[in-house]
């Protein structure tokens, strides 16, 4: 473990990974309970289109992906509320459109290479100092929004119809959560890649919900499970020479299995 922490790139990976996984997991609790778990999957596919566009125009692919993901989040909320599409249908429409567009743009940019693969499968060990700062800002932003809107978000998550009838600004709250999810996914993409980033949102949250007895405990447990996945995933990747992204998600799944078993015992 001591040797593991001697490397600066591993230190950066650990700090940024913990912050991003924590943010993903906390948002995941709201999304899973709203049965919007696939939103992360959909937004990650659209992020792929953004990346490909960035690679095509040769301008800061991460920044372009960020703009495209936020726009897609806005569009998703509008599609659900205005076009009357169910959540999963709206996600499927945008997700397939994003992936198709990404394939076409990546082909046009002739970027089916290691650069693109690093976004698909993640490259946590290549995280820069600037990305660590971004991850810290993201975690602080998410904590501020969730803390500030906590009671409204919990009411909306539990009973959407009553929250609307009580005069809560349902669409604006939806927009806040979905845009935060989009921003988180763009950063999470560096940790585990586009293909697995939705796991950072869903798996720790699903594990926490197996055993949590209150909403606050669910948020804390999910954040802890996300952070633990990164720590143990990176450690096992270091020790056993595994790809970090896969190891992180597999650790998360083991934690989920443990939580599900604990729930059965508690019954």
């Amino acid at each position: 473990m001591g040797a593991f922490l001697e490397f600066a790139f591993l230190q950066r990976a650990l700090v940024a990974g913990i912050l991003i996984a924590f943010s993903c997991a906390v948002l995941g609790v709201f999304l899973v309970l709203r049965r919007d778990a696939m939103i992360g999957h959909g937004l990650s596919h659209i992020t792929f289109a953004g990346l490909a566009l960035g690679l095509l125009v040769r301008r800061l692919p991460l920044a372009v992906a960020f703009v495209v993901a936020v726009f897609a989040a806005w569009l998703l909320v509008k599609l659900k509320s205005r076009a009357g599409l169910h959540g999963d249908t709206a996600v499927a429409v945008l997700s397939s459109g994003g992936l198709a567009l990404g394939i076409v743009l990546a082909s046009a940019a002739r970027t089916y290479n290691a650069g693109l693969l690093s976004y698909l499968f993640g490259e946590i060990l290549a995280i820069s100092r600037f990305e660590v700062v971004l991850a810290a800002a993201l975690a602080a932003g998410i904590a501020a929004v969730i803390f500030g809107l906590y009671h409204k978000l919990v009411f909306l998550t539990f009973d959407r119809e009553s929250a609307r009838a009580a005069g809560l600004p349902v669409e604006r709250l939806d927009m806040a959560v979905t845009i935060l999810a989009a921003v988180t996914i763009v950063l999470g993409m560096r940790v585990v890649g586009i293909l697995l980033v939705s796991a950072l949102i869903v798996v720790p949250a699903a594990a926490a919900l197996q055993v949590a007895s209150s909403f606050r405990k669910a948020l804390c447990l999910a954040g802890t499970a996300g952070a633990l996945s990164v720590v143990l995933g990176l450690l096992s990747a270091y020790v056993f020479d595994l790809p970090a992204s896969g190891a992180i998600v597999l650790v998360g799944l083991v934690l989920f299995g443990g939580a599900a078993a604990a729930r059965r015992r508690l019954r």
Partner: peptide
């Protein structure tokens, strides 16, 4: 699986109508 007690659900509407951090 929603992690809320009866008391927490009853308080939801009241707390959502209050200011942040209430």
């Amino acid at each position: 699986l929603f992690p809320a007690s009866v008391r927490e659900v009853v308080a939801m509407g009241l707390l959502a109508s209050r200011r942040p951090f209430h």
